[in-house]
Design a protein around this nucleic acid. Structure first.
Lengths: 115, 115
DNA sequence: CCGTATCCAAAGAGATACTG
DNA sequence: CAGTATCTCTTTGGATACGG
C-alpha cells in the first residue's frame, strides 16, 4: 500500500484547546470520572456503568487518564485477573470542574433534550 | 461507486457525553468564551484573540453558542458591516466552569507542555 | 476477566476562494 | 468587514475478532 504522507501537519492533532479540554475532551471521559468519583471500579464495572462505551475506547480513556496522573491502576494477582481503577488526589481535584460542566449543561437550551 | 450503508448508527454522532461537553466540546469554544468574558467582541477581534482559528470554525462556534443562548449577536447598520458578540447572562454563568477547567488543566501532567 | 489489533465510518477542522 | 461554499485530510470512535 502506498502511504500518502502528503504533508506533515504543522499543528498537533485536532485542535489545541489551550489546555482546556486537553484532558476532558476525550469521549466518555466525564462519564468515567463520574463513575470513579463514587469509588474504585473494575474494568467491567465501568463498562456496566457506561454501557455504550466500547472496550477499546474505555481502555484508551483509562490509559490517557492514568498517564495524566488522574487515576491509578491496581492489578490484583487473582486467578481471573482483576484490575481496579481509582481516582488519585489530582483526579479528585477535577471533580468540581466536572460538576460545574454538568450543572451548566442542564441550564442550556437543549434542542433534543434526550434526558 | 457503491455506497456502503452497512448499518445505521444506532446512536447520535460521536458520543453522547451525557450533557457534559455537548456545548464546550467544540474546538475553540473555551477560547471564544474566554475572549468574550472580557466584554463584547467583533468577529475580527475574536480572530485576533484566537489567531489559529479559521473563519469557518469560528462562525460555527458562534452560531452554536448563539443557538444555545450563550451569546448574543448584534448587527450594527454601519457602512462596512459591524457585528458584535457578547455573552448573555447564561453565558456568564458558565464562566466558572471554564475557569475550573483551565485551572485544573494547569495542574495536570503535560506531556508536550507547549505553553 | 482484561484487554489489544484491525478495519471501517463519521465528524470535524483547515485552507482557499468567493460573496454581500 | 463578516461571513459562506467547497474540498481534503486527520482524528476518533464503534464493531468485531483475537490474545494473555
Amino acid at each position: 500500500m502506498v502511504l500518502k504522507v502528503r504533508k506533515k501537519v504543522k499543528a498537533p492533532p485536532g485542535c489545541p484547546m489551550s489546555r482546556c479540554m486537553a484532558l476532558l475532551g476525550g469521549c466518555w471521559t466525564p462519564e468515567v470520572l463520574w463513575s470513579l468519583s463514587e469509588g474504585p471500579r473494575r474494568f467491567s464495572e465501568l463498562r456496566r456503568d457506561i454501557p455504550a462505551v466500547s472496550a477499546k475506547v474505555l481502555t484508551s480513556r483509562l490509559r490517557d487518564l492514568e498517564e495524566r496522573g488522574v487515576l491509578g491502576r491496581n492489578v490484583m494477582p487473582t486467578s481471573p485477573p482483576t484490575v481496579e481503577y481509582e481516582l488519585t488526589s489530582l483526579g479528585q481535584e477535577l471533580l468540581p470542574a466536572i460538576r460545574s460542566i454538568v450543572e451548566v449543561g442542564s441550564r442550556l437550551l437543549l434542542s433534543d433534550a434526550s434526558g
